[in-house]
Amino acid sequence: MKQNQKKAWLFLAPALICVTVFSIWPIIRAFIMSFQGGPLINMQFNGFANYVYIFKDPDFWHAILNTAIYAFLAVPIGLIISIALAWWVFSKIKHQAFFKTMFFMPYVTSTIAIGIVFRYILNGKYGMLDFCLRAMHLPAPDWLDDPSMSIISLIIFGVWASLAFNIVILMGALRNIDPNYYVLADMYGASGREKFWRITMPQLVPTLAFLLTVNLIGAFKIYTQVYALFNGVAGQANSAMTAVFYIYNKFQVVGTPGVAMAATVVLFLFILFVTYLQRKLMKKVNS
């Protein structure tokens, strides 16, 4: 058979054209626009002004800080709960498929719709959560209208939403562990705890590294959850402003696309850096 089958390009053409226009070009264009000022229809080169602007803008740092707090709290909490649930359902429950189906539900459902329900449950006046907390004589904060609670509410929402994917991936990984390890451990009289820490956890490391990255990247990009939970705004007094929310505001609401693109480039480079770290970590784990 011929070594260079040119017809391949014909089959790849639709994909390549679309990818060039809607994936490669936008990246290049975002970089270009980040060095331009003015409205979208008439942008002019203005050097590093946008970068200077965002680094001086307290709102930008506030958004970055919020995003970081969210990412570094919601991701580990979500992962720890997911590991516990996945391992216990995997090792102690007979009807695994039933629980898996149930725990996975949030993954397929619309964030906006679930946000409406969460807003209802977290309502400070008639919400179910505060009602339960008061019934147990615990403090019942105003989850949505108290600015100091915004990020915590967002974390609760984020953790709830993240469990689905984590649990299903972890259960897939648990199933891939050679059952002979456990048979052998049983023969030596290992306890459940020993089996978990000596066999399960080490075997899960690559999966956990993968989930950590995916979750972190997802957390850095958080936008729809904020919109859903606070009904289109970034919480009371912008208390839940996140990086992508900042970008959206600068792009669409304020009408400074150059500033938005500078922030996008910063976020993009940061996400690439995390991905790079993960690759390196994975290589180390695998070798």
């Binding site: 790849l12 390549l16 990818v19 226009v21 809607f22 994936s23 490669i24 070009w25 936008p26 990246i27 264009r29 975002a30 626009m33 979208l40 990247i217 990009k221 936008y223 992508v244 970008i247 959206y248 792009f251 696309p257 938005a260 693109m261 996008t264 976020l267 993009f268 996400i271 690439l272 991905t275």
Partner: peptide, 25 residues
Amino acid sequence: IQLIFLSLLMVPGEAIIFTNYTTIM
């Protein structure tokens, strides 16, 4: 081509969505 595809898999959608809006506009 495979290398380009794999690299593009790592690009977050949020990084290109605003410039795509400009294109569509």
